[in-house]
Design a protein around this nucleic acid. Structure first.
Length: 466
RNA sequence: UCCCAGAUAGCUCAGCGGUAGAGCAAGUGACUGUUAAUCACUGGGUCGCAGGUUCGAUCCCUGCUCUGGGAGCCA
């Protein structure tokens, strides 16, 4: 007897009358005195459940089947038939239903056939994948990740795995998580009383990476088109629906490219992903559209079909100053854009995704390329309606004298960056890249409001359960 | 980290200065194929923690913890 997935059985992949076996977890059981129990079986292969029709003539009907509750694991053998009822095309007329794993105490099983709050489900993050919502999130997350790899591969990019542990404390923004094997109760000290990190595992201070960008730039200046895609860590005490302490980031880097090439790549990547997900995850997206956030499908379709707007930072400031709208924070040239400004630009001023380019040099990172005006750097943010900043990127400073000057300006010691300066000394070329927050992308596609609900086990300040 | 709100049954919530309620879930029974079925009955709570006010606190006050929303930082 062939074991088939619920997805294939519901899709009509097998002929009527085929004898099959389905395996999964019970969502609900309904009994009829006619001598039939209806079991909704889900195996995570798709949103839908397979209806198992279990007749009272089965030997374990009264002893086991009538005691099945939500969450029980079973195997069902039977013939695939057209359903007499509404709601499903096919069902299994069961010849045997075997209990694989019972729910010990049904009253305390957290996942009930009803709506739960996301807050509650976070407390049972190990069981929430059994809900419709988290099953769909998990499938869509997977599809997006595959789509990103497919798109970049098709464009000739090479996936480079940059380190997760880094001993260079110079990756730029963000508070770092320390990595150490020193005994915290008995720290070795130097003569001057400081902690002696020469005795630590790596012989120096080490941290979890906040970005693979610096490391991937080196590979870019050899393989031309590269990207990193891996976990990154920020020890910031941010408590918002858009931040995680551990999240995944996609960071492409292109050689012989400038900021416009960078923006074009960002736009093409986002469109390719959205198109792919619309094609491959139609059922799950319909669920999100109906139950999670109205209009997510239309939003994705619109993104695929429209050109992203591009606007210079200076023009954006003028647009904000001329806006018939009162902002909490006033806008002036030289100030960083606040969330309210970004949302106005993308949602009201242009009404679609917008790339803001060429920011004042004082408010951006040291590695960003100084423009000819001497006042701005070749940095960009991609802003999307409903979420705000989804991508941040820049053309990198490839001229070593300018790079050194900016390091000094930011209070950095160029000698600490010798390896990063090396590839400016040996065959340097213009290059650019960006960072795309993977979970923010998943949240945008699914319409899920809190980023903690688009990653299996969210890590946030004060929370690393599971 | 700052501002605001909240914490009552397994879950979602109502309640009120006089000692606790509903719906769903669970258990039992009824029901000729059901669609988060329906109907009846049953069990289930140190009302977040610690103090204070009061004859009496789940309710009022203070502190703490945790959760959510907004802001900052950013992806």
């Amino acid at each position: 007897m062939a074991w088939v997935t619920v997805k294939d059985a519901l899709a009509g992949k097998y002929a009527e009358g085929t004898t099959i076996t389905a395996k999964g977890w019970v969502r609900t059981r309904r009994d009829s005195k006619a001598g039939i129990s209806f079991i909704q079986l889900n195996d995570g292969s798709c949103m839908g459940n397979l209806q198992i029709v279990a007749p009272a003539t089965l030997s374990n009907y009264a002893s086991e089947i009538q005691h099945l509750t939500s969450g029980c694991a079973i195997e069902a053998d039977g013939v695939l038939v057209r359903s007499q009822g509404q709601g499903q095309a096919f069902e299994i007329q069961a010849s045997a239903v075997r209990i694989v794993g019972l729910v010990d105490d049904p009253e305390t099983y957290p996942i009930q056939p009803k709506a739960h709050s996301y807050e509650f489900l976070r407390e049972v993050a190990h069981l929430r994948p059994r809900t419709n919502t988290f099953g769909a999130v998990t499938r869509v997350r997977h599809a997006i990740k595959q789509s990103i790899h497919r798109f970049l591969d098709s464009q000739g990019f090479c996936w480079v795995n940059t380190p997760i542990i880094t001993a260079s404390d110079c990756e730029g923004a963000g508070q770092l998580f320390r990595v150490s094997t020193l005994d915290l109760m008995n720290l070795p000290r130097t003569d001057s009383g400081k902690i002696d990190f020469s005795q630590d595992f790596f012989g120096k201070e080490a941290y979890l990476t906040v970005s693979g960008q610096l490391a991937v730039e080196a590979y870019c200046l050899a393989l031309s088109k590269v990207y990193t895609f891996g976990p990154t860590f920020r020890a910031e005490n941010s408590n918002t629906p858009r931040h995680l302490a551990e999240f995944w980031m996609i960071e492409p880097e292109i050689a012989f490219g400038d900021l416009n090439d960078d923006a074009s790549l960002a736009e093409a990547l986002l469109k390719a992903v959205f198109k792919d997900v619309l094609d491959r995850c139609a059922e799950d997206l319909r669920f999100f559209d109906e139950r999670v956030q109205k209009g997510v499908i239309a939003r994705l379709e619109q993104m695929v079909g429209s050109e992203f707007a591009r606007i210079d930072y200076g023009d954006a400031v003028i647009a904000l100053q001329n806006a018939n709208k009162v902002f909490e924070f006033p806008v002036h040239w030289g100030a960083d854009l606040q969330t309210e400004h970004e949302r106005y630009l993308t949602e009201e001023y242009v009404g679609r995704p917008v790339v803001v380019m060429n920011y004042p040099e004082q408010i951006k990172a040291f590695y960003m390329r100084l423009n000819d005006d001497g006042k701005t750097v070749a940095a960009m943010d991609v802003l999307a309606p409903g979420i705000g900043e989804i991508i941040g990127g820049s053309q990198r400073e490839e001229r070593i004298d300018r790079l050194d000057a900016r390091m000094v300006q930011f209070g950095l010691e160029p000698h600490a960056y010798e390896w990063y300066r090396d590839f400016r000394r040996y065959g340097s070329v213009p290059h650019a890249g960006f960072g795309l927050g993977f979970e923010r992308l998943v949240a945008y596609v699914t319409g899920m409001a809190n980023i903690r609900d688009v990653i299996p086990y969210p890590r946030t300040p004060g929370n690393a359960a599971f």
